[in-house]
Simulated scan of single mutants.
Amino acid sequence: MSKLFGSFRDLTGNKLTGTIPLGLLIRIQDGNLTLRYDHSPNLCSNNSSCQPTQENRNSKTTGYIAVVVVASVVVVALVVLLLFFVIRRKEEPANIHNQEGDVQSRNRRFTYTELKVITSNFRRVLGEGGFGPVYDGFLEDGTQVAVKLRSQSSNQGVKEFLTEAQNLTGIHHRNLVSLIGYCKDGEYMALVYEYMSEGDLQHKLRGRDRNDGCLTWRQRLHIVLESAQGLEYLHKACSPPFIHRDVKTSNILLDANLKAKVADFGLMKAFNQDGDTHVSTARVVGTPGYLAPEYVSLL
């Protein structure tokens, strides 16, 4: 609150703003008035000092321009980055199932000599299917793998081999067996998979290993559910969708924790990409009784 004592006014601490009236300034200059206005930094003692100087105006203008320029650069950079990703995505092949080069670009290619080293000259057989025998092996870093070598007497030819290899380069799911690499060395063809220590479900259900106990109903339920999740991924999440056409217990593999993964994709077929769900019936393949329902319903 201001205090008045004759020709003395104390306005200290009032945090005044604006301009001191001209009449008071004249009295102060004539010595008829003493005015204190401490702690009022925004109070101007003359008209000119309350107006921003040209230097201040220029600095503010420069600041505004800098902000606009920086914002424009950021926007342009984001647009360029977005266009880059869009163009790059368009340049990527829409279909990964056309040529062997696709397989080589995504997975390791082994020579037949390397496979002999990995499997210790094909010493230990893990199993055998329509494609050929499956051997136990170890990579250089100690990773255990399963090597499926095409037999010369196999009824599955080069087409089925490339189909399985190429299909597996573009599909990845926790309930599908992962492809590590492949071999196409002259007449020798092989696929290198992740190792599934508990073998196939058929083996487990028949109890060929007397040391293994029977699967509990809870374990069986989990295996069925996980297998279904792998098939659902093929049918619904892939573009184009796939049908397995050979789903059976021998093609469901189990790891050390009895986690199920669907395997053997040599007979897998893609639906047409144009939305048509028609499947040609000129060559019906697969194990009778184990074909996918979506495939059978269109026969």
Rank of each mutant, 00 (worst) to 15 (best):
Q229K: 14
G13Q: 04
C214N: 05
G286A: 10
F8Q: 14
A282G: 05
I171S: 04
V158R: 12
P241Q: 07
L24C: 04
T113W: 00
T163D: 15
L258C: 06
K261S: 14
D30R: 12
M189C: 10
L78K: 13
R283D: 03
P133W: 00
L25M: 12
S227H: 02
R245N: 07
V247C: 12
R27M: 04
E164L: 15
N121P: 01
A270H: 15
F5W: 07
N175I: 03
E128N: 02
Q202W: 09
T111E: 04
Q99A: 09
N42M: 07
E194N: 11
I252H: 02
S153I: 03
N257L: 08
L201Q: 07
V86Y: 10
G207A: 07
Q99Y: 13
Q104E: 03
G157P: 10
T249I: 00
K259G: 02
T287D: 11
H222L: 06
V73N: 01
P93T: 07
G286Y: 02
V145R: 03
P21A: 15
I118G: 01
L215K: 06
D274V: 00
I180Q: 13
L231P: 01
N272R: 11
Q202N: 15
L179C: 01
I180H: 08
C214H: 03
A165C: 14
R220H: 06
H278K: 05
R57F: 01
A228H: 03
R124Y: 02
S197C: 03
S72V: 13
T163Y: 08
S297L: 07
N257W: 06
D185H: 09
N32L: 05
G213W: 00
Y233N: 08
R89S: 11
Q54R: 11
H172S: 14
S178Q: 14
I180S: 06
L22N: 11
P133V: 04
S48I: 09
I28L: 02
C238A: 05
L162E: 15
L168D: 01
Q152C: 08
V68F: 14
P21F: 09
R124E: 10
A260W: 12
T163W: 08
A190V: 14
I96T: 10
R208T: 06
H97V: 12
N257V: 00
V67T: 14
L234W: 03
I180E: 09
R206C: 10
D38I: 05
M1G: 13
M189H: 12
W217G: 07
A237K: 15
P41M: 07
L298T: 08
T12W: 00
G266M: 08
Y195M: 07
L16D: 04
H97C: 06
P241N: 12
V69G: 08
T17Y: 03
K116W: 00
S154W: 00
A94L: 01
S49C: 05
T61A: 13
S154G: 03
N211Q: 00
P52W: 09
L126I: 07
L291G: 01
I171A: 08
R218L: 10
R36T: 12
